[in-house]
C-alpha cells in the first residue's frame, strides 16, 4: 500500500516529484499505515539523541555494508534487516538524515538496488526539520516485524564497477568530490584521511561538480532552473546521456545520482561506488591531474 504523494508546489517541476516529501507532509502523515520513516546518518549516535517520532534507524556502516567484503549486503540480509524494521515490500519509505541527506540518499540508492519501489527523501533532512522547530523524540518506536521477500540486488541499472567505467570512457562522468581531491592536491577528503587512495587526481574527462552544489542554504534541493544551470549548462549534460557519478566511496555520488535521476530526470545514471578509493589505488588506469577534465583516454 502506497501513501499519497506530497503535492507541494516546490516539488512540481522536478522530474519525479513523488520522490520528495516536505516537513509539513511528513508531520501530517506520521503514523499513517504503510509509511515507514527511516533515519540514516553519518554519525551513528545522532538517532539516539532524538529522532522523528516512529522513525527507525538504518546505519550505512553497520547495516548496509557487508561486514567482510567491500560490497553491499545481499538479498537475504536486506530482507532480514528491513523486515525487522517493519518495512514491507509495498511500504512507503521516507528517509532523512544529517549532512544534507548525504547518507539518506545513499540509503535510498541501496534500497533502489533491491528494487524497493516507493522510497523518498525528506527534503532538507534533519537540519531543515530542526530549523522549522519540529519535534524529535528519544522514545523507541514500536516495531512490528514483517516478512520482506528475498530479492536479489540488481546492480546493473544504477551501479557501475571499475570495468564498467573503463568501458564508459567517452561518455559523461561527474566527479562530485571537493576541488582539491579532483585536482589531485589531496588523495582524501579534508577530515577523512582514513579513506585515502594511493594516487591523486580524477578520471580523465570527468567534470567536477561538488555534490553540495545541488543543495540550497537551508538544506533543501535547489530548483530545476538552478540545477539545470549547474548540470546542463555547467557540466554539459544532455538528455539521453549515459552518466556515471563517483566520489570517494560512493556516498556523495549517490546524492548526485538522486539529483540527476529523480530531480532532473536523466535515465541510466549509474553510481560508481568503488569511486576514488578504488580508482586511485588501481593499477594501470588512466588518471588526470589538475583542474582541467583532460582528454578521453584512447582505449
Amino acid at each position: 500500500m502506497t501513501v499519497e504523494v506530497d503535492t507541494a508546489p516546490q516539488f512540481s517541476a522536478f522530474a519525479h516529484p513523488e520522490r520528495l516529501v516536505s516537513g509539513d507532509w511528513l508531520e501530517a502523515h506520521l503514523g499513517t499505515p504503510g509509511l515507514v520513516v527511516v533515519e540514516s546518518d553519518e554519525d551513528v549516535l545522532l538517532y539516539e539523541t532524538g529522532h522523528i517520532e516512529g522513525a527507525v534507524k538504518i546505519d550505512w556502516h553497520t547495516d548496509l555494508n557487508d561486514p567482510v567484503e567491500r560490497d553491499y549486503i545481499d538479498g537475504a540480509a536486506f530482507a532480514k534487516l528491513v523486515g525487522a524494521k517493519g518495512i514491507s515490500r509495498d511500504s512507503t519509505v521516507v528517509i532523512y538524515g544529517d549532512k544534507n541527506n548525504w547518507w539518506a540518499a545513499y540509503a535510498l540508492w541501496v534500497f533502489t538496488l533491491f528494487g524497493h519501489e516507493d522510497v523518498r527523501l525528506l527534503d532538507g533532512g534533519r537540519a531543515k526539520w530542526e530549523a522549522d522547530g519540529r519535534a524529535y523524540t528519544t522514545a523507541e518506536p514500536e516495531i512490528t516485524p514483517v516478512d520482506y521477500p528475498v530479492v536479489e540486488r540488481n546492480d546493473a541499472a544504477i551501479r557501475a564497477f571499475k570495468e564498467d567505467v573503463i568501458a564508459h570512457l567517452g561518455n559523461p562522468l561527474i566527479d562530485v568530490r571537493s576541488p582539491e581531491e579532483y585536482s589531485g592536491e589531496r588523495t582524501h577528503m579534508p577530515a577523512y584521511p582514513e579513506e585515502g587512495a594511493l594516487r591523486g587526481g580524477h578520471i580523465p574527462s570527468a567534470q567536477s561538480v561538488p555534490w553540495a552544489r545541488a543543495v540550497a542554504e537551508d538544506g533543501t534541493f535547489k530548483s530545476v532552473p538552478e540545477l539545470d544551470a549547474i548540470y546542463r549548462e555547467g557540466a554539459g549534460l544532455k538528455d539521453g546521456d549515459n552518466i556515471v557519478a563517483y566520489c570517494r566511496i560512493g556516498e556523495r555520488s549517490s546524492h548526485t545520482w538522486f539529483v540527476l535521476t529523480h530531480l532532473l530526470g536523466f535515465e541510466g545514471v549509474r553510481n560508481y561506488d568503488g569511486s576514488w578509493t578504488e580508482w586511485g589505488s588501481a593499477v594501470r588506469v588512466p588518471i588526470a591531474k589538475g583542474t582541467e577534465p583532460g582528454a578521453v583516454p584512447a582505449k
Partner: peptide, 10 residues
Amino acid sequence: TEAVSPLRIR
C-alpha cells in the same frame, strides 16, 4: 568497533 564500525573508531 562492532557498535560503531572500525572506520569510525579511528
